[in-house]
Amino acid sequence: MAALENILYGANLSNILSAHKNTVLDVLAWMPYGVTHIGAPFVVSGLMFVFGPPGTLPVWAKAFGYMNLTGVVIQLFFPCSPPWYENLYGLAPANYTMKGNPAGLAAIDKLFGVDLYTSTFIASPVVFGAFPSLHSGCATIEALFMSHLFPKLRPLFVIYFLWLWWATMYLSHHYAVDLVAGSLISAVAYFVSKGTFLPRLQPGKMFRWDYDYVERGEPIDADAPYGLTDIEEYLLPDSDEWTIASGSSLSGNNSREPSIGMRSPGAGDNWDGDTLASSSDHEDHKL
């Protein structure tokens, strides 16, 4: 991932951001990475239940779960080392006997005099699970769902998302490539949910109890050009008339509806126009 990041971005962004450390920056990075990341899913779930239309919470929970499941599967089948490994071992080949490392979070243990993150990361069963970043994935999908629910607060959610991106690289836990991959997985999960399953917000409704009915998925835009409806109307200008004409031509005179479009003379019809027989009679008179 370090080589890929150098190719894509021209530098190792994690090493650049973590080159200068101090206590204030350590705490600023720890807050989203080690605190809000843990509690944010529960807070978002509560807000989805109270302020979202009925059915919003299950859609959020499934999208969040599938995003995490996809990320873990990729981590297991495509193991990648985090930046701290390169900083400690360089380009030496990795193996699964190596222990994890808290990297920048070791400063938090030292600051508070605890052994929380050091012992946790050393005992981690997935040492080389940096790609994709589930920290980034969680922050992205939380920001997207919260922006859907509270669109006026979207700048606040974007700031939190960018804050966590910075924190993961400052703490030497993820490359920028890992963050982009996690966000892409979350974006796919969100937009699939929004287009098909997510209940729509209705104007003037604030709480779930205000909704009398629920509409799901993206609304159909009647003014959208070249839509399927427009094509059908172009090919079949009036579907009702086409259906009546087809039914009357098949059912003959048994249809109670008047035939519109194609007509054929039959018994009981007052046919005012010319027929093949009448035109041939005119020709015989001329002869």
Rank of each mutant, 00 (worst) to 15 (best):
I231M: 13
D274V: 09
P132G: 06
F49Y: 15
K286L: 14
S259P: 06
T196Q: 06
S183I: 00
G71I: 01
A2F: 07
P54W: 06
S248L: 03
A143H: 05
F161N: 11
L236D: 10
D115C: 04
L184I: 15
M206Q: 06
I108W: 09
Y170W: 10
D274M: 12
D221V: 08
G268P: 05
F121T: 05
A130M: 04
W242E: 10
S239E: 14
G71F: 03
Y226C: 10
S251K: 13
D230H: 11
A224N: 03
S259H: 10
I159W: 07
S147D: 08
L276F: 12
S45Q: 00
D269W: 15
G65D: 04
L250Q: 14
P265H: 11
I74A: 07
L13I: 15
G10A: 09
Y211I: 09
V127P: 10
W166D: 05
W242C: 10
T196F: 15
F128I: 02
I185G: 08
D281L: 12
P53F: 06
W165D: 11
K152C: 04
A3P: 04
E283D: 14
W165N: 09
L149N: 06
D210Y: 03
P32H: 05
R256K: 11
A61V: 14
S255C: 11
A19F: 11
R154Y: 13
L88W: 12
A94W: 12
I185H: 03
F121S: 10
V27E: 07
A277I: 06
V188A: 14
R154H: 05
P93F: 04
L144A: 09
C138Q: 08
D240C: 13
L198D: 10
F112G: 03
N12Q: 12
N254E: 08
H20V: 15
M262N: 11
F131R: 09
W163P: 02
F157Y: 15
T229S: 07
L105R: 04
G55H: 00
Y213M: 08
Y33T: 12
N15L: 15
F49E: 03
F157C: 04
G204H: 11
G113Y: 12
G39Y: 03
M67R: 01
G247I: 13
K110G: 03
V126S: 05
S119C: 04
T168C: 13
Q202K: 14
V24K: 12
S136V: 01
D240A: 15
A63Q: 10
V59Y: 03
C80S: 06
W60L: 04
A40S: 02
P258Q: 08
S279E: 13
H174K: 11
T70P: 02
G204L: 11
W166R: 07
D178F: 03
N253W: 01
V35R: 00
W242V: 12
A181V: 08
A181G: 09
A2I: 15
G100C: 06
D272V: 11
F49Q: 02
A123S: 14
K62V: 15
V35P: 02
G100N: 07
L164C: 01
E5Q: 01
G217E: 10
V24P: 06
G227C: 15
V35Q: 02
K110W: 01
A189M: 15
S172F: 01
T140P: 02
I244M: 13
Q75C: 14
F207R: 02
N15M: 14
I122N: 07
G52P: 06
F150Q: 09
R263C: 15
H20D: 11
L144H: 00
N22T: 08
F191M: 00
P125W: 13
L236N: 10
T168W: 02
N68F: 05
F145V: 00
